[in-house]
Computed example of a mutant assay.
Amino acid sequence: MALSKSSLEARFVQEMEALGATAEGEHSWVNKLAKALANAVVDEFQENGKASVGGGSSQGDWPIK
């Protein structure tokens, strides 16, 4: 499964709303915070994440894309 910034952003908004936050309104930071978190998480995984394969012809550490 590929990492998706927009999917993760929507999930963050959904989770914050479930905790009582409001995503609507002039002063709400929910959407901005969700976007910033999603961008940072996906970028970090793609830039520094490694998947370890323990056996077979693909054995080794491989970057996460």
Results as ranks from 00 to 15, higher is better:
Glu9Ile: 01
Gly20His: 06
Ala40His: 10
Val30Arg: 00
Glu24Gly: 04
Glu9Ser: 07
Leu19Phe: 10
Ser28Asn: 02
Ala23Arg: 02
Ala36Gly: 14
Thr22Met: 05
Asn31Trp: 00
Glu24Trp: 01
Leu19Val: 03
Ala34Glu: 06
Ala36His: 07
Leu33His: 02
Glu9Leu: 11
Trp29Val: 11
Glu15Pro: 00
Ser6Ala: 15
Ser4Tyr: 08
Lys32Phe: 09
Glu15Lys: 04
Ser4Met: 12
Val30Lys: 00
Ala34Gln: 09
Glu9Tyr: 01
Ser6Met: 12
Lys35Phe: 08
Val42Trp: 01
Phe12Glu: 03
Val42Gln: 04
Gly25Arg: 01
Ala10Pro: 00
Ala10Gln: 06
Gly20Arg: 03
Glu24Asp: 11
Val13Lys: 02
Val13Thr: 09
Ala23Asn: 04
Asp43Trp: 03
Asn31His: 03
Lys35Pro: 00
Ser6Gln: 15
Leu19Asn: 14
Met16Glu: 02
Trp29Met: 12
Ala21Ile: 00
Val42Glu: 04
Ala21Thr: 01
Glu44Thr: 13
Ala38Gln: 10
Ala36Ser: 13
Ser4Pro: 03
Leu33Met: 11
Glu24Tyr: 01
Ala21Met: 08
Ala38Lys: 05
Val42Arg: 01
Val41Tyr: 12
Ser28Met: 02
Lys5Pro: 04
Ala38Asn: 08
Glu9Gln: 11
Leu19His: 06
Lys32Leu: 15
Ala23Asp: 02
Leu8Phe: 09
Ala36Glu: 09
Glu44Ala: 15
Glu44Val: 13
Phe12Cys: 08
Glu24Val: 04
Asp43Phe: 07
Glu44Phe: 15
Glu15Trp: 05
Ala18Trp: 10
Gly25Phe: 00
Asp43Gly: 05
Arg11Thr: 12
Leu37Arg: 07
Asn31Glu: 07
Ala10Phe: 05
Asp43Gln: 13
Ala36Thr: 07
Ala38Tyr: 02
